[in-house]
């Protein structure tokens, strides 16, 4: 059962990853990317960690994929694809992928794990919180600093350059312009807040 689910999830994840690269329509490509991220969430479910899996869905499928979709819709395709495609690049990419997959496969085969066993007790999220506050506290502090830096960076990037005279008059539109930029940072902030709690 678990093996079948593993194989199905692998097919879904890898297949939609290939589709995300190869589809000509960028919207369908980003939908395929959502499939990949959802497949990874499925792997986390198989590994008995529903907490991480649900965060994978909520943050990656729910927020990051939406931002990618949003960007793709608002940016014209000609601005992204300037380069003429070279068939050799694709062959090189496929070759690199094969080398990587053979290497990873050798590691997996060497490890002696023959089957997936699911159905163990799920990892308690309270334990994750305890670990973060005790043994892994430097990682927590580092994460907090990185997130604070990214929030500040998003605010700086989202700020509009206004001429001096118009600054006071254009205060309200400037505030509205902060929405999408700050959205990304905010979503990460939530993730961090949940983990810390």
């Amino acid at each position: 059962m678990a093996d079948a689910a593993f194989v199905a999830l692998s097919v879904l994840t890898v297949g939609s990853a290939i589709a995300a690269l190869e589809l000509r329509s960028m919207i369908y490509g980003s939908i395929a990317l959502m499939g990949t991220l959802g497949g990874i969430a499925g792997f986390f479910f198989l590994l008995d960690s529903p907490f991480v899996a649900l965060f994978q869905i909520a943050v990656y499928v729910g927020s990051i994929a939406v931002l990618i979709l949003f960007t793709v819709m608002l940016v014209r395709r000609e601005l992204i694809f300037k380069k003429v495609e070279d068939p050799r690049r694709r062959l090189a990419g496929i070759g690199l992928m094969l080398v990587f997959m053979v290497a990873v496969g050798a590691v997996v085969l060497d490890s002696g794990i023959k089957q997936v066993s699911a159905g163990g007790p799920p990892v308690e999220f309270t334990e994750i919180g305890e670990d973060f506050l005790t043994y892994y506290w430097p990682a927590l502090v580092l994460m907090a600093l990185v997130l604070a830096a990214s929030v500040t960076g998003a605010l700086v990037l989202a700020r509009r350059e206004e001429p001096d005279g118009a600054a006071a008059a254009a205060e309200i539109p400037a505030a509205a312009g902060e929405g999408p930029g700050a959205g990304e940072a905010g979503a990460e902030g939530v993730e961090h807040g949940q983990r810390a709690g």
């Binding site: 649900l54 869905i57 729910g62």
Partner: peptide
Amino acid sequence: MGLLAAFAVIGFFPI
């Protein structure tokens, strides 16, 4: 993880 699952589902509406 009912509450988290609810938020994961709510995240699909904007998409």
